[in-house]
Amino acid sequence: MAGSSGKNINVTIKVWRQKNKNQKGQFETHEMKGVSTDMSFLEMFDVLNERLITEGKDPVAFDHDCREGICGMCSMYINGRPHGPKQGVTTCQLHMRSFKDGDIIVVEPWRSAAFPVIKDLAVDRSSFDRIMAAGGFVSVNTGNAKDANNILIPKDDADEAFNAAACIGCGACVAACKNASAMLFVSAKVSQLALLPQGQVEREERVLNMVKQMDAEGFGNCTNTGACEAECPKGISLENIARMNREYIHASTIANRK
């Protein structure tokens, strides 16, 4: 890679180790010497894991996939913040140049009753999938594709829907929230369809069913601290939560159905 800063630092990693969701976990300390500041945080963990494997020890389990900030798999809670100290990035896009020589870095899994720990730093986020399955889709009739300009959408609405759709479902909002609330995630998924004409048919059912599933999964309740918005790697706005509240209040009270 061009433009290497060529610096190496020493850091101490305090990482959460937990065999499975039923066992109690604890922190494990590892000294990382000569870490290149050009490494991503996950690459630093790769180095740690290779060392652990060579030593015949159990490597640290953590989620990752694309490593380019778009899949939403990486999920570490670093020094008291989801995805670490930088704003608007996922853990894979966090680099060791964001840390100083001699830093002690505490790494924990997302902590939420609805995200049980599978192992170490890997948590089960299938509660998000079940919320999506409850209503985060549009039903489309089969047949020929319609002409793109048949349905006109105001630019502002399209932009808003696109911004909401930028959510990668990583769960940082839940991790950051003092109440472990999933309302930023659910509201983004409600909004991206509520703003578009294609989402109107199932609009009321969608918000009712998704909120019902969200509550059933055991997520907490939003108190509008704004921590989720500040920590979201995709900058999903709190406006979405207000929109979801509006949609839900409308669907439960004013909407003309049983």
Partner: peptide, 24 residues
């Protein structure tokens, strides 16, 4: 309900990085 939603808390929380103390 919120307490139940996070039975095990974090060892380290940097709340000041993302929200005001009074909102929390």
């Amino acid at each position: 309900a919120n307490k139940k939603a996070r039975p095990q808390g974090y060892a380290q929380v940097n709340g000041a990085a993302n929200s005001t103390w009074y909102s929390r």
